[in-house]
C-alpha cells in the first residue's frame, strides 16, 4: 500500500503503561483491536479525532504519540 508518513509510538507506550493490551487501548479509544494492530504495523494513518483519542488514552499530547515522517 502507499507510504504512510504518520508514524507512532503506540507499541512502546503500551509497554510503558503497565503493558496495556491492544484490546484495552482499543476499548479506551473506541475502536476495534484490528485498528490498533494496523496502527502499530504502520498500515494505517488515523483520523485526527482518533489520534487525539489515542493520545488521551495515554494521557499524552498528540506529538508525544504520533510523528510526521521519519523519526
Amino acid at each position: 500500500m502507499g507510504q504512510h508518513l504518520v508514524g507512532n509510538h503506540i507499541r512502546k507506550l503500551r509497554f510503558n503503561h503497565d503493558e496495556m493490551t491492544q484490546q484495552q487501548l482499543a476499548d479506551k479509544a473506541g475502536v476495534t483491536r484490528q485498528t490498533i494492530v494496523a496502527l502499530e504495523k504502520g498500515n494505517y494513518s488515523p483520523s485526527l479525532e482518533l489520534a487525539f483519542r489515542i493520545a488521551r488514552a495515554f494521557g499524552l499530547s498528540l506529538e508525544e504519540v504520533f510523528f510526521y515522517g521519519e523519526e
Binding site: Q23, V31, T32, Q34, T35, S47
Partner: peptide
C-alpha cells in the same frame, strides 16, 4: 474466548 467486535470503526 474473545467476543466479536460489535461495531464498525473508521478503519472498518
Amino acid at each position: 474466548g474473545e467476543k466479536e467486535p460489535g461495531f464498525a470503526d473508521e478503519l472498518d
